[in-house]
Amino acid sequence: MPIAIVSVPVTDVARARTFYVETLGLVVLRDEAMGPDMRWVQLQPKDSGATVALVTWFDAMPPGSVQGLMLAVDDIDAEHARLAAAGATVSPVDEQPWGRFTMLQDPDGNGWIVAQLTNPDEVKTR
């Protein structure tokens, strides 16, 4: 049973949508009104996978409360440079046994990890 949608709480859906599309490079799957005061904005990484819904309606999930969501990339150095050029504040690339990664936050403070994951078979042979 794969994860289909991860809710990310934001204050301003339009501002967050711009960040997730223009900075992170996600693709808009849906952007539809949900009544007079809400929008359903659903995004997905270009190479598929679980989707992200930008939400404003969960009282128990204030904007900025999601931390540690991870996006996998093939080349962390190239992605780090691309994110920085797109205006994101990214941490220096760090290395751990599970992979190399950088961290950043969306405009509301939700924390993301962008990682080049190490193949588990390679780790076993070290």
Score class of each variant (00 low, 15 high):
Val55Asn: 07
Val13Leu: 07
Gly87Leu: 03
Asn119Gln: 06
Thr51Asn: 04
Glu95Ser: 14
Asp47Thr: 12
Glu32Val: 12
Ala88Cys: 04
Glu79Asp: 12
Ser65Arg: 01
Ser48Tyr: 09
Ala33Asp: 14
Met61Asn: 01
Asp31Ser: 11
Thr102Gln: 05
Leu24Tyr: 03
Ala50Phe: 10
Ala14Phe: 03
Gly68Val: 10
Val8Pro: 04
Ala33Cys: 00
Arg39His: 14
Leu71Cys: 05
Asp31Phe: 07
Thr18Met: 00
Thr89Phe: 02
Pro97Thr: 10
Leu117Glu: 15
Glu79Gln: 09
Ala78Trp: 03
Gln105Trp: 00
Ala85Glu: 12
Asn110Ala: 06
Gln44Met: 11
Ala60Asn: 14
Gly87Ile: 02
Ala4Thr: 15
Ala86Pro: 10
Pro92Leu: 07
Ile5Thr: 14
Leu54Pro: 09
Pro36Ser: 14
Thr102Ala: 14
Arg126Ile: 06
Glu95Ile: 04
Ser65Cys: 09
Phe19Trp: 12
Glu32Asn: 11
Val55Ile: 15
Asp12Met: 07
Asp12Leu: 06
Leu54Asn: 13
Gly64Arg: 06
Leu104Gln: 07
Leu24Phe: 04
Leu117Trp: 05
Val52Ile: 15
Gly35His: 10
Ser7Met: 13
Asp47Phe: 08
Asp108Tyr: 12
Ala72Val: 11
Asp47Val: 02
Gly99Asp: 07
Glu22Ala: 12
Ser48Gln: 13
Val27Asn: 02
Thr89Gly: 06
Leu117Met: 15
Trp112Val: 07
Gly87His: 01
Met34Tyr: 12
Val55Asp: 12
Glu79Cys: 03
Phe19Leu: 07
Leu43Ser: 01
Pro107Thr: 03
Ser48Thr: 13
Gln42Ala: 05
Leu83Thr: 03
Val28Gln: 03
Leu26Tyr: 01
Leu71Pro: 01
Asp106Leu: 11
Thr18Leu: 06
Trp40Ala: 04
Ser91Gln: 12
Ser65Asp: 05
Pro62Thr: 01
Gln42Trp: 02
Val13Cys: 07
Asp106Met: 08
Ala84Arg: 13
Asp75Gln: 08
Val52Ala: 03
Met61Arg: 05
Gly25Met: 04
Gly99Ala: 12
Asp94Trp: 08
Ala88Gly: 00
Val13Ser: 08
Ala50Lys: 09
Gly25Ser: 10
Ala16Phe: 00
Leu24Pro: 06
Arg39Asn: 11
Arg126Val: 10
Val28Lys: 06
Tyr20Met: 05
Met103Ile: 06
Pro63Cys: 04
Ala81Phe: 01
Thr56Gly: 09
Val21Tyr: 00
Trp112Asn: 03
Ala16Gln: 03
Trp57Gly: 15
Asp94Phe: 11
Leu29Lys: 13
Arg100Val: 09
Gly49Arg: 10
Phe19Asn: 07
Pro62Arg: 02
Ala16Asp: 04
Leu117Asp: 05
Asn119Thr: 00
Arg39Tyr: 05
Asp94Met: 15
Pro92Cys: 07
Trp57Met: 14
Gln96Phe: 08
Val21Pro: 00
Lys46Gln: 14
Gln116Phe: 05
Ala14Gln: 14
Val55Trp: 06
Thr51Phe: 00
Ala53Leu: 11
Ala33Lys: 13
Ser7Lys: 15
Ala60Met: 13
Val73Asp: 07
Trp98Met: 13
Ala16Val: 02
Ala53Gly: 01
Asp59Gly: 08
Trp40Phe: 13
Arg82Cys: 03
Gly87Cys: 01
Thr18Cys: 05
Leu29Val: 14
Glu79Tyr: 02
Thr125Arg: 15
Ala14His: 08
Glu95Gly: 07
Pro97His: 11
